[in-house]
């Protein structure tokens, strides 16, 4: 996701964590305000292209080698590269968070990675191999050329919300409040309980593979409904947007609730 998605996910999580959890992570992250999760939600992206942070560049995705729209599915052994992927990273950084022998700075970084990667695994194109998660597919968006990955990361959500694009934190906060209401008493009320079924703290791979497979299924149904070649050069801000927007809302809501 772009900043808007990551920050919204963090604010949704802030709305559902227990008091004890809030105090625990405020301590670990050194931030006593309501922005303690939102303020670090994009940190992993900010270090990704720096020299020292380069080790983490492959941690944001898993390249599912499936065949959309005919066949979707993620296989951990087949798809997670030797130097890591979003699923192995969630395992690694969750276990670092649970290891009280590590230095506080290590656990602080682990928290920032977990907060970010729970978000990324819910973006369908972070769980897809085709054209590097859609980065190599040129499409049109409101008459301008973009790559498909960027459209799913940012453009669709930004169009949904409208308003001033520069006010990312305000927009994310507002979006998070709306989605929190939908989870607590709106359209997600009944299904949200099942979003956290079968969470296993001692088996982060199994847990995040459920999330990855769910996310990847949207690659077949909504990202490439007619296959990857049919979308090249298409204008996506119309009918395609109308179908994709509810998926993005749902995935952001789920990511926030599951992160909490």
């Amino acid at each position: 996701w772009g900043s808007l998605g990551h920050i919204a996910i963090a604010y949704i999580a802030s709305n559902f964590v227990k008091e004890n959890t809030e105090a625990y992570f405020q301590g670990l992250l050194g931030n006593d305000t309501e922005h303690y999760l939102a303020g670090v939600a994009t940190w992993a992206d900010s270090i990704r292209y720096t020299k020292w942070g380069r080790f983490s560049k492959n941690f944001h995705f898993i390249d599912a080698k499936d065949d959309p729209p005919t066949y979707c599915g993620v296989d951990f052994v087949r798809d997670c590269k030797e130097d890591g992927c979003v699923v192995s990273s969630l395992q690694n950084y969750t276990s670092q968070l649970l290891d009280s022998k590590l230095w506080p700075w290590q656990r602080n970084q682990a928290a920032k990675f977990v907060i970010h990667f729970v978000g990324d695994i819910h973006q369908p194109l972070h769980v897809e191999n085709v054209a590097q998660g859609g980065n190599g597919i040129h499409v049109n968006w409101q008459g301008h050329e973009f790559n498909l990955h960027h459209v799913w990361d940012s453009s669709i959500a930004e169009k949904m919300l409208g308003g001033n694009r520069r006010k990312t934190y305000d927009n994310a906060f507002r979006w998070a409040s709306d989605l929190t209401d939908e989870i607590k008493s709106g359209k997600y009320l009944t299904e949200s309980a099942s979003w956290i079924d079968g969470l296993l703290l001692d088996d982060p791979i199994a847990t995040s593979m459920v999330w990855a497979n769910e996310s990847n299924a949207y690659v077949c149904s909504h990202v490439f409904p007619e296959g990857p070649t049919a979308i090249i050069g298409q204008e996506l801000a119309g009918e395609y947007f109308e179908k994709a927007a509810p998926v993005i809302e749902l995935q952001v809501a789920k990511a926030g609730y599951r992160l909490a």
Binding site: A13, F16, V17, K18, N20, T21, Y24, F25, T94, L97, L98, S100, V114, V118, I196, L199, L201, T207, Y257, R258, L259, A260
Partner: peptide
């Protein structure tokens, strides 16, 4: 729910999903 589980484990508290 993931952060709740982590905080519970580290605080020696209960392992259920609490308020969620």
């Amino acid at each position: 729910a993931w952060l709740n589980l982590i905080a519970d484990r580290m605080s020696g508290g209960e392992k259920d999903l609490g308020e969620l």
